[in-house]
Amino acid sequence: MTGSLARLPSRGVILSGQVASFPSVDLAFAWTQAEDVPVILGQVNFFMEFDVCFFRSQLAFEINPKDLRQGSSSL
């Protein structure tokens, strides 16, 4: 870890994970002894592997595998 966490011991691991019926992906997890660091599922690369939409007013979210088409974009 770098920045303000560089002085603390930390560990990391890469695991193969599966979300719902989507194909398995490698997910990287890291943690440290700092008690004031929030933990977010797969913070290291989860959001690079999945498209996630949050619907705050409905207290819900939707997860889909990333769009594998290169160069595509939508707004």
Rank of each mutant, 00 (worst) to 15 (best):
M48G: 11
Q18K: 15
D36V: 06
A60Q: 11
M1G: 11
L75G: 13
F50S: 02
V37Q: 09
F47Y: 12
P9G: 07
Q18N: 08
V44H: 10
S4D: 12
F61L: 13
S57K: 11
S72Q: 09
L27E: 01
S4H: 13
S57L: 08
A30C: 14
A28F: 03
F29L: 08
F47K: 06
S16I: 02
R7I: 13
S10N: 11
G71K: 02
E35Q: 12
T2E: 08
D36E: 07
D51S: 12
G3L: 06
P23H: 05
S73K: 03
A34S: 14
F61T: 04
F61G: 02
A20M: 08
R56C: 07
R11K: 14
Q58M: 09
S4T: 08
F50E: 00
Q18A: 07
F55C: 06
F46Y: 03
M1F: 09
S21F: 11
G12M: 06
I40G: 00
V19N: 03
Q18D: 07
A34F: 03
Q43F: 10
G3W: 08
S57E: 13
R69H: 05
T32N: 13
L75E: 12
C53A: 15
Q33S: 15
F46T: 00
S21Q: 14
Q43M: 09
